[in-house]
Simulated assay, not measured.
Amino acid sequence: MKNWAFVSDFDGTISQKDFYRLVIEKYYKEGDKKYEDWQGGHIKDIDFLSEVFRNIHQPEEMISQDVLSLPLDPSFVPLVQKVQQAGGDFFILSAGTDYYIHKILNHLEIENVKVFSNEGYFEENNVKMKIDPNAWHYSERYGIDKSLVIKKLKEQYQTVYFAGDSEPDSHPAVFADVTFAKDSLQTILTSKHVPFEAINNFDDIIAYLKNNEVI
């Protein structure tokens, strides 16, 4: 069994803005109504994202520019480096799509970071999502079941750290050894009596790992 792994959500955790929000603001004004329906529980997460991403209607070069314009936590790259230098493995776990995550990792020249997410691809000036109901981590609501991924990693690592920011992250947080929570995830986990370390950014995570002699 390996020593430890660090797993991070992407949208709102690594990125400071969700990619779907950027798309709605720039290209899909009707998305605000879809957002309300989603928040009201009338649309599944994966159906909401699929609807938004297939209403971009832009060439891939423009989509790539939009992806790379997403503001990231300034300490994302330093955190990856410190985790890997200390012998940990870094994973990204997202209920969005790996399409834009891989673009950002490639742009930043980040290596040896495995991404667990919904498969995405460019087609007809949009981003399409390929959901496999036979995948071992399939979720009808999210496309990917983050809890199953964390439980799988816990079979391979002695300690699994997890960072997230919103409702989908509340489910894997139950199974991680230590959860770093920001924004609405703090309130959700408090209401569920799930322990967590409150953070504002990745600098707080780096400080915690240093104080606990992990890195």
Results as ranks from 00 to 15, higher is better:
Lys44Tyr: 11
Gly96Pro: 11
Asp145Gly: 02
Glu213Lys: 15
Phe19Glu: 03
Phe48Val: 01
Lys34Val: 13
Gly87Arg: 05
Tyr35His: 13
Ile101Asp: 08
Gly164His: 08
Phe91Asp: 06
Glu167Gln: 14
Glu109Ile: 11
Leu185Met: 09
Asn200Met: 08
Ala207His: 13
Phe19Ala: 01
Glu124Val: 07
Ala198Met: 09
Phe116Ala: 10
Val178Tyr: 06
Val115Thr: 04
Asn134Arg: 11
Asn212Ile: 03
Leu189Lys: 04
Ser69Phe: 01
His57Cys: 11
Asp45Ser: 15
Lys34Gly: 09
Tyr208Cys: 07
Thr13Tyr: 03
Phe180Cys: 03
Leu22Lys: 14
Phe6Val: 07
Ser191Asn: 14
Val113Met: 07
Gln158Pro: 02
Ser15Cys: 13
Ile205Asp: 07
Lys146Phe: 04
Met62Lys: 14
Asp18Leu: 11
Pro78His: 05
Tyr35Met: 14
His171Val: 12
Gly143Ala: 04
Arg21Asn: 12
Phe53Tyr: 14
Ser8Gln: 11
Ile131Pro: 09
His42Glu: 14
Gly164Ile: 02
Ser15Val: 06
Ile110Ala: 04
Lys44Val: 04
Phe162His: 05
Leu153Glu: 09
Phe91Cys: 02
Thr159Tyr: 10
Asn55Val: 03
Ile150Asn: 01
Lys33Gln: 14
Phe19Leu: 15
Tyr99Trp: 12
Lys29Ala: 15
Ile144Val: 08
Val160Pro: 01
Tyr28Gly: 10
Thr187Arg: 12
Leu93Tyr: 00
Gln156Gly: 00
Gln81Gly: 06
Asn201Asp: 08
Asp183Asn: 14
Trp38Ile: 11
Ile188Asn: 00
Thr159Asp: 07
Gly120Ile: 03
Tyr161Gln: 10
Asn211Glu: 15
His42Val: 13
Phe91Leu: 02
Val23His: 01
Val52Tyr: 08
Glu197Tyr: 11
Asn55Tyr: 07
Lys29Glu: 15
Lys34Trp: 14
